[in-house]
Structures are given as structure tokens and as C-alpha cells.
Simulated scan of single mutants.
Amino acid sequence: MREQINAALKQSTLDKNKRKVSTLRLINAAILDRDIAARGAGRDPVSDEDILEILTKMIRQRLESAKTYEEGNRLDLAEQELEEIAIIKAFLPAQLDEDEVRSACADLVKETNAKGLRDIGRCMQTLKSRYQGRMDFGKASTVVKGLLS
């Protein structure tokens, strides 16, 4: 993934696409921060799964910012955040739709033999390991709660 991001950064620089260049630099900075933290703790540099987690977090932050800007009637800033989200999403795998999320949750509940609400954490942990970057875990949590209650 690092190579993809760096190649996109080079191309964006050549294309003089300022928004994309700045967003890709922010992504690289977030990855580098995580690498430095891992190195300080004696771990390996971040993996592709960690990068997916970073990108997902960046999207979530931008959605919150865009909502705040819209409430504050700063539509120009909200639009900027949405443009950054589109750039970041280009590096994520295809997202599962609602039916696929429901199906995956139902299969997992059967597979893990989950019985009650106390098993939600175990189910969500398994979903996160299998579908990192491909599923909205907030929605998935709601589906799992519905299945287990």
C-alpha cells in the first residue's frame, strides 16, 4: 500500500493537483507517525492492515469535521473534507453493502456459536480481523446486537 500511496503522490505532484498532494502527504505523515511509535516500542513498521486502519480513522475524522462545518454553515470547508474523503477511499478495498454486512454478521454469529449480548465483543473482534477496511463496524455492531438480543 505504501507504494501505491507514494506513486499516487508522485503523479498528483506532476498533475499539480494540490488537494490530492496535501491529502496524500497527510496519509504518509500518519503512517510515518505510526512507524515511529512502533519502532519506539520495538515492533516492526506498520503493515497493510495497519494502514487500512489509519485510512479508516482518517475518513471517520473527516466525516465528523464535515458535519461540524455544515452545522457551522461553512460549506466550503465541508466540501474540502468530502474531497479528502474521496481521495482516501481510493486506497481502501471495496466496501461491503448492507446485505453483505448482514450476511457476514449472521454467518459469524452461527460460526462462533454466540448466544447473548456478552458475545458481541468476540464477534466484533473477529469481524474486524476478517473485514478490516471493508466494513463499517458501527453498522455491523448494530446488526450483531440485533441478532444476539
Rank of each mutant, 00 (worst) to 15 (best):
L92T: 10
K67V: 05
E49C: 06
L82W: 07
G40T: 12
Y69F: 14
G42M: 09
R74D: 15
T56M: 11
P45K: 04
I27M: 11
R102S: 11
I5E: 04
K139V: 06
R39L: 09
A104R: 01
Q132F: 03
G72W: 11
F137G: 01
T142W: 00
Q4Y: 10
K110T: 14
L77S: 05
D35C: 03
I54V: 10
R19N: 10
D97H: 04
S47Y: 09
N17A: 07
A29T: 14
G42R: 06
A29E: 15
S22T: 11
P93W: 03
I85V: 14
N113T: 11
K139D: 07
I51E: 01
I88T: 02
N113P: 07
R130F: 03
T126Q: 15
A140R: 01
E53W: 13
E53K: 15
A114H: 04
Q4M: 11
C123H: 01
I59D: 03
L148W: 00
I36E: 08
P45T: 05
S141A: 10
R62S: 12
R34L: 09
V101Q: 00
I27T: 04
T126W: 08
Q125Y: 13
A114S: 04
K20G: 02
T126V: 15
K145S: 10
A7I: 02
E84H: 06
L75S: 15
Q80S: 11
N113C: 10
A90N: 05
L117T: 08
D97G: 06
I27P: 02
L96S: 02
L63M: 13
G133H: 01
D107S: 07
A41W: 05
E84V: 10
L24V: 02
G116V: 06
G40W: 07
V101C: 02
L75Q: 15
I51R: 00
G121C: 03
K18N: 05
L63W: 14
F137C: 00
M58H: 01
A7N: 11
N6W: 05
